[in-house]
């Protein structure tokens, strides 16, 4: 168990002293999902480290986003561009806007990392997206590298492995 004086949630700014445990990480993931569902995208981006990345690969065994096509590969800079666009009045892909519900489950936490302040988390998700009279459903696995930086639990890497990553997708404008 990592020993730290940690704010588990940068949103709630709830302080926790001592170790980060499985329950804290669960709550962190639920809160992340809730921020997306509530379209609090700037606050959601704040959950990422400065050099954090968000990646949706196209292939199950894909090793990196530079040698093979990806659906999304955002660093903080492109994440902020995407979020600015989500607030633009002329984003046609969000007219009408999406409503989403993320369900995060089967959370497995590896707390026994060599570095005491990094955690590997594996989870399953479904996301319902409703837009323009149609409901879509995405599902798959999330893998997270989480880090404690400056007393905050943050996302270093989030990878979204869709079960149908190589399918022909309807357009996606919001984060999964």
């Amino acid at each position: 168990m990592a020993q730290a004086h940690v704010r588990v949630s940068p949103v709630d700014r709830k302080e926790k002293s001592g170790s980060v445990d499985h329950h804290d990480i669960e709550q962190f993931l639920f809160m992340e999902a809730k921020l997306l569902d509530q379209k609090r995208f700037n606050e959601w981006a704040d959950l990422f480290c400065e050099d954090g990345t968000y990646w949706i690969p196209t292939e199950e065994e894909q090793v990196d986003p530079y040698s093979h096509a990806s659906i999304i590969f955002d660093d903080k800079q492109s994440m902020m561009a995407r979020i600015r666009r989500l607030g633009h009045p002329m984003i046609h892909a969000q007219s009408p806007p999406s409503r989403t519900t993320h369900i995060v489950t089967n959370i497995m936490t590896d707390l026994r990392m060599d570095k005491k302040e990094e955690f590997l988390v594996d989870a399953c998700f479904t996301m319902f997206e409703y837009r323009d009279d149609e409901q879509l459903m995405y599902g798959g696995r999330y893998t997270y590298n989480l880090k404690i930086l400056g007393g905050l639990l943050l996302i270093d890497k989030k990878i979204v492995k869709l079960v149908n990553s190589d399918a022909a997708h309807n357009i996606m404008a919001v984060y999964i």
Partner: peptide, 12 residues
């Protein structure tokens, strides 16, 4: 270039 295509021409 591969990364850039994800930003300009992927489904997302």
């Amino acid at each position: 270039a591969v990364r850039s295509v994800a930003a300009t021409h992927s489904p997302a």
